[in-house]
Amino acid sequence: MLAAYVQYWKINLLTMLEYRADFFMWFAFTIVYHGTALAALAVTMLRFPSMNGWSLREMFFLYALWMTAHELHNALFFNVTYVPEYIREGRFDRFFVRPFDTLFQVLTVPSRTFPDGFILGLVTLAIATHVAGIHVTPLTVLTIAAVLCGGAGIDLGISLFVAALSFWLIRVDTLRWIVMSLEQDFTRYPISIYTRGVRIVLAYVLPFAFMNYFPASYFLGKHDAAFGLSPEVGLLTPLIGLLWTAFSYAFWNIGLRHYQGTGS
């Protein structure tokens, strides 16, 4: 299994070198995408020096934390997004006739992925940590790493859940789109600025708040103004990522039994 995974990355790297123009275009797009989001944040914060007690520097860290976790998910698990397409077009069949777990095979379809966004995220996060004035110890580094993994796990869990739904419903694009916009729009600001309903969704239903809001509060030593929880709640992120992934994986396995394939 490890050999197959190594081979997968080798092929990714080779294809990236082969399609260099495409790669640089994507990389430029990633920079522009996150750059625009950060610029918008800066413009907003010029008008309001503080948002529910969060300064621009702190919000920069908030964003960088989400961005890095999300890009980690994109680098490792992005193929999950293609599952509905595989199923609809009958290309999912092949995963059943090979001696590996179907999800593992989905994740290792050569797809020209390269962890460029994640590397960009790490750099941004390092700068943001410095700018936010967080005192960095080896323990902080480990905690941040755990939070990033947990954040990527939350992303994976949610996208896997949507993908598994497509074993029953052939079209899940709308749902995927809704979840994606929710994530993008509501991870930019501290969730305490939203109404109670939105806060509950972001903390308990689709726990994007655990990708950045709660852990950022922990690292910045801020009291949670959304629910009045203690900052240590932010340390639950790895656990929540694990739970969501495990739950969605179980759901995925039920879906496999329902797989009906396409016509011929």
Binding site: Q7, I11, R91, R94, P99, T108, P110
Partner: peptide, 25 residues
């Protein structure tokens, strides 16, 4: 499956084979 290839669209044939070699050990 005659109607559907099991090979990877963007890869040279030999890369698909290499990947299968790793998959089946």
């Amino acid at each position: 499956f005659g109607q559907r290839t099991q090979l990877y669209w963007d890869l040279p044939l030999v890369d698909s084979f290499e990947l299968l070699r790793a998959i089946y050990g």
